[in-house]
Nucleic acid binder design. Structure first.
Length: 391
RNA sequence: GGACAGGUGGCCGAGCGGUCAAUGGCAGCAGGCUGUAAACCUGCCGCUCCUUGCGAGCUACGGGGGUUCGAAUCCUCCCCUGUCCA
């Protein structure tokens, strides 16, 4: 049942590696950034644009899709790939993050999580087993088990309770997944034409910034055995050195021959640094959300493009960028689109930011293969406050 | 010519004797967003000064005059706008 993951190159000066993740809907070259398409859409883009940008795999969210249009509806319509016309790999998150982000609307019990819908307040129950059923119905290539993502800071007691609950849920998820993957499997896999490959299930390591709990969680989850391993519960407000420290610690405890996914991270600097720590997969709302909110990423750092200071700037968002938006539109025009509230402001900024992230990851991968990763890593500022100078 | 209703900070619009430099909204300015309740949210938004403080001074609710310890708020005259009647 193990998801096939091939390591094609390793960096000598760090734990960075380049690989290929073989999924039913195609191969994914790692390290990879997965754009976030929570409700079955990467906001402000079309699937055509995602393909043009070179997105290989996108992320969707179980909680949101269960609210609307419902997992059954998606399955009836042929699974997520057919429904959203994205015939490429998809990963679904479980709703574990919503345990934290929708705090106040959720109640965690041993059996699972009761959510009150953020839309109409109706109660919905998400147990590890039901989440497996939901995700198998949605039909993603990689699915995540229900976990509990806790806020920072958290007491040792809270973290310990959370790690152990997440561990028990992981065991239940795996059991249910193994027993029912055939029964609930989405018709989307019929399209794939890759016999023998079905959906894969990852395990999630929790434990906040507590070293001993991270170790305990990593050992427990790897003991259960999954197709890949994710590190959750980071970038929730902890200091940068904790983020890197925990990431480095946990990657050291995970199998060398399986993919490692750092959930929800991060800034451009975070991605490069965490690749060096051995991470293969990332997702983050930052490029898409910041784009809609008027901030773009450039080789010179962040740029609040909606600012008045660009009102007369005829240059591109990033002179070093080769994306379609930078080839065609000026800062002044994009700033104007934000000023007048045009939807195209979000569209253009999102396109550019996704290009920035995806292109950066392609360069990171190429650097690992061509032995140039050390140099690239050295160009990343030690202090993230300096902004990204990534060339 | 007459009758009403109004004229408030860039705009709209509250306030109707002191706690008003004046609620709100918009516009403007700056910023924040890390497994998306996010095309969202936060702060600033008359001028000057400083010990940057529930700080001081100045200017300001169409214009002039007045009542009052005190007026955006009351009186009076004038100007202007809208609706209606001639």
């Amino acid at each position: 049942m193990r998801l096939k993951f091939t390591v094609v190159a390793k960096d000598e000066g760090s734990r960075a590696r380049a690989g290929i993740l073989h999924t039913p809907h195609g191969d994914v070259e790692t390290p990879v950034f997965m754009p976030v398409g929570t409700a079955g859409s990467v906001k402000a883009t079309t699937q055509d644009q995602l393909e043009e940008l070179g997105a290989q795999i996108i992320l969707a969210n179980t909680y949101h899709l269960c609210m609307r249009p419902g997992h059954e509806r998606v399955r009836e319509l042929g699974g997520l790939q057919r429904f959203m016309s994205w015939p490429h790999p998809i990963l679904t998150d479980s709703g574990g993050f919503q345990v934290m982000s929708l705090k106040g609307l959720g109640k965690v019990t041993e059996d699972g999580v009761w959510f009150r819908s953020h839309l109409d307040g109706t109660p919905h129950f998400f147990s590890p087993e039901r989440v497996m059923e939901f995700e198998l119905s949605l039909g993603a290539d990689i699915i995540m088990p229900l976990d509990e993502c806790v806020e920072y800071p958290a007491t040792h007691e809270t973290l310990r309770r959370s790690v152990r609950l997440t561990g028990r849920w992981a065991e239940r998820s795996k059991q249910f997944f193994a027993a029912t993957r055939e029964k609930f499997q989405s018709p989307a896999f019929e399209d794939a034409g890759r016999a023998g490959l079905g959906p894969s299930l990852f395990g999630i390591v929790q434990g906040g910034t507590d070293e001993s709990l991270r170790r305990e969680s990593a050992l427990e989850v790897t003991e259960i055995g999954f197709d890949g391993y994710a590190i959750g519960g980071l970038s929730v407000g902890e200091p940068k050195d904790e983020l890197y420290g925990v990431t480095g610690q946990v990657t050291g405890l995970l199998p060398e021959d399986q993919p490692r996914y750092l959930m929800g991270v991060g800034t451009p600097e975070d991605l490069v640094k965490c690749v060096a720590l051995g991470i293969d997969m990332f997702d983050c709302v930052m490029p898409t959300r910041n784009a809609r909110n008027g901030t773009v990423f450039t080789s010179e750092g962040k740029l609040v493009i909606k600012s008045a200071r660009y009102a007369q700037d005829a240059g591109p968002l990033d002179a070093a960028c080769g994306c379609q938006v930078c080839r065609r539109y000026s800062r002044a025009y994009i700033r104007h689109l934000f000023a007048v509230g045009e939807i195209s402001a979000s569209v253009l900024a999102t396109y550019h930011n996704l290009w920035f992230y995806l292109d950066m990851m392609r360069r990171v991968r190429q650097a690992i293969i061509s032995k140039g990763f050390g140099k690239l890593l050295a160009a990343v500022p030690a202090d993230p406050a300096q902004g990204s100078r990534l060339v």
